[in-house]
Amino acid sequence: MPSTPSRRAAAVLGAALALTGLGVPSAAAAPPTLDVVNLGDSYSAGIGTGGVRAQPWDERCLQGSGRDHVAALDDHPRVDVVLDAACAGFRSADVAVLAGTPAVAAALAGADAVTLTLGGNDVGWGEFVTRCGTRGDPEACEELQDGAPARIAAAAEAAGRTVAAVDDATCGQVVVLGYPRLFDARRDSALITAERAAELNAWTDELNAALEEAVTAEGAVFADVTDRFRGHGVGARDPWILFEPGGQENLHPTERGYLSGYLPALRGELARTR
Rank of each mutant, 00 (worst) to 15 (best):
P2H: 13
P2Q: 11
T4S: 15
A9Q: 12
L13F: 06
G21T: 08
L22G: 11
G23K: 15
G23A: 07
G23Y: 10
A29R: 14
P31W: 05
P32G: 01
T33W: 03
V36H: 04
V37W: 00
N38K: 08
Y43D: 05
A45Q: 05
G48S: 03
G50E: 01
A54G: 14
A54T: 14
D58I: 10
E59N: 11
E59M: 12
C61K: 01
G64D: 00
G66S: 10
V70I: 15
L73H: 11
D75E: 13
H76Q: 14
V81D: 06
A86E: 02
A86C: 01
A88F: 05
F90V: 14
F90E: 12
A93C: 09
D94M: 01
L98Q: 14
L98D: 13
A107Q: 02
A109S: 12
A109T: 12
G110A: 01
D112R: 14
D112T: 11
T117Q: 06
D122E: 14
D122L: 05
G124R: 03
G126K: 12
E127I: 15
F128L: 11
T130R: 08
R135G: 04
R135Q: 04
R135W: 14
D137K: 06
E142F: 08
L144I: 15
A148K: 03
P149C: 01
A150D: 01
A150Y: 03
A153N: 02
A153L: 01
A154D: 06
A156V: 12
A159Q: 01
G160W: 08
T162N: 03
A164V: 12
A165C: 04
D167Y: 02
D167L: 11
A169P: 06
A169D: 08
T170S: 15
C171K: 15
C171H: 11
Q173F: 11
Q173V: 12
L177S: 07
L177P: 05
P180R: 00
R187W: 09
A190L: 07
A194R: 14
W203Q: 15
E206T: 11
L207P: 00
E212H: 12
T216W: 10
E218T: 06
F222P: 03
A223F: 08
V225K: 06
T226W: 02
D227N: 13
R228H: 08
R228I: 01
F229E: 00
G231S: 02
H232C: 02
V234G: 01
V234W: 00
P239K: 00
W240D: 01
P245E: 05
E249Y: 04
L251V: 09
P253Q: 06
P253H: 07
E255H: 13
R256H: 15
Y258Q: 01
P264I: 08
A265S: 10
R267L: 12
